[in-house]
Simulated assay, not measured.
Amino acid sequence: MKSKQIQLDELAQLVQGEPIGQNHLLLDGLASLPQAKAHQIAFVNGDKHIEDAQASQAGALIVTAAMREHLSNHQNFIIVDNPYLAFAILTHVFESKVTQRGIESTAQIDPSALIADDVYIGHYVVIGKNVVIGANTVIQSQTKIDDHVEIGKDCFIDSHVTITGEAKIADRVRIHANTVVGGEGFGFAPYQGKWNRIAQLGSVRIGHDVRIGSNCSIDRGALDDTILENGVIIDNLVQIAHNVRVGENTAIAAKCGIAGSTTIGKNCILAGACGVSGHISITDNVTLTGMSMVTGNILEPGTYSSGMGLLENSKWKRTVVRLRQLADVPLTKLVKQIDHMQAQIESIESTLKLRK
């Protein structure tokens, strides 16, 4: 594939930056500081990378004005306030995109479906009754879009995705391979030692600019809809159960599981492998560190953690023993012991003062 070559000043314009050096220098890609070549551009994400930047062979660097003063080995720059953001924007310039449009001959599309003229629908895609697919959307091979699903404009649906349950997906949504949206939620009513299946009658609603990774499950609601608001980003291997609501711009990392009927606020971050119980609420601007287990409401913004950090094995064993011993002592007894110790300390302090 032939590389796309773009001038330094054109790249600077795309990120609203100031080009310094050879404005017409042709660059054909982004690279890390250690790996960059003379025909590539790299970014410097903070002062701690100045030394690597000095040694880099990159043809140009994305830096702040202050960083440039420490980079005497280089002549070509794009000056911006936020190099990492500029890098993120330029990745889209060099990204390989699906430019093909049209419907492959092996796709099966119900006659009642409304498909925009400029979409791409790949081989062996199956599209059901009354489906709506918006302009400039790409649907890759062997994906299944069930009856009454609606997909907006400029979406990307990767291979082997299933979208069912009459899900409604807004614009600029990306869903990656092997993910299921709108599958049956895990709802059962126990009676006389048996589990009685509850039919899931709700749907899934996904807002604008949502990104869902591969191998995720977003279950439809039992009655009310499961909702992902605008700007939510979800990593691979995430389970979101029925009737969950996730607020705008919340990020959920890999292997998180969110149980049913839980509400998560806006601008939250769930680091990897967090578990969230059902029927609880998490307010806006909450960060959960990795492997946190949330079993109750979080009503105040902030950073929360649970579990135990890594210890050398023998120390971990001793810690667990002590925790078990502590758990066997009634709390009231511990409080009394602490109060007694405090009284003794105060008595000793009073004696020492009298002696002085």
Rank of each mutant, 00 (worst) to 15 (best):
G272F: 04
A55R: 15
A271V: 14
D28K: 05
H74W: 03
Q40T: 14
L11S: 03
F156Q: 07
K333T: 15
M67I: 04
Q192F: 11
L114D: 03
Q342M: 09
K255P: 00
S159I: 13
A189E: 06
A53G: 05
L323I: 14
M308W: 08
S305F: 08
D209Q: 10
A271P: 09
R101H: 02
D284C: 13
V329Q: 11
I6C: 03
T226S: 08
S261A: 06
K356R: 10
Q5Y: 15
K353N: 01
D235K: 13
A343S: 15
S56T: 14
I218G: 07
S306D: 11
D171V: 05
V132M: 10
M293P: 00
F87C: 00
S261L: 06
V232R: 04
A135S: 13
N178V: 02
V173R: 05
E166S: 14
G207D: 04
C268W: 07
L114I: 05
Q344E: 15
I163L: 11
L334C: 07
I298C: 13
G231C: 10
N267Q: 11
I163C: 08
I348A: 12
D28R: 03
H49M: 04
S281E: 12
I227L: 09
T289C: 05
Q54K: 15
L288M: 10
Q13D: 07
E150V: 12
L299A: 15
T295Y: 13
E312K: 15
Q5N: 09
V286M: 11
L114W: 00
G193M: 12
C216I: 08
Q239W: 14
D146P: 00
H160C: 13
R211N: 05
G134I: 07
A343G: 14
D146A: 09
H123N: 12
I338D: 11
I252P: 02
Q108H: 06
C274M: 06
N76P: 01
S3Q: 13
E346P: 00
G102Q: 02
G231D: 07
G202V: 08
R322F: 13
F43I: 13
D146K: 12
A253M: 07
Q40C: 11
V131C: 06
N196M: 03
I348N: 05
T179A: 12
T351A: 14
T250V: 06
H176S: 02
Q54N: 15
C268A: 09
I79C: 01
V132Y: 10
A241R: 14
Q22G: 01
D235S: 07
V63W: 01
G165D: 02
V63L: 03
I280W: 11
N313P: 15
N196Q: 12
G278N: 09
L85W: 02
K255G: 00
G260T: 10
N178G: 13
A42S: 15
V286L: 11
P111F: 06
I264W: 06
L323C: 05
R205N: 10
E300L: 14
N215F: 04
V173Y: 11
H208P: 02
T137S: 10
H123Q: 10
G272A: 12
L323G: 02
V276W: 07
Q337F: 02
P34T: 12
I78E: 04
L223G: 04
Q35K: 14
I139G: 01
A86R: 07
S3W: 00
Q100R: 09
N313I: 07
Q140Y: 13
E346F: 05
S203R: 12
I79D: 01
I240R: 14
V44Y: 06
I234E: 08
C268H: 13
A42R: 13
T250E: 09
Q200I: 04
L326K: 04
P19I: 13
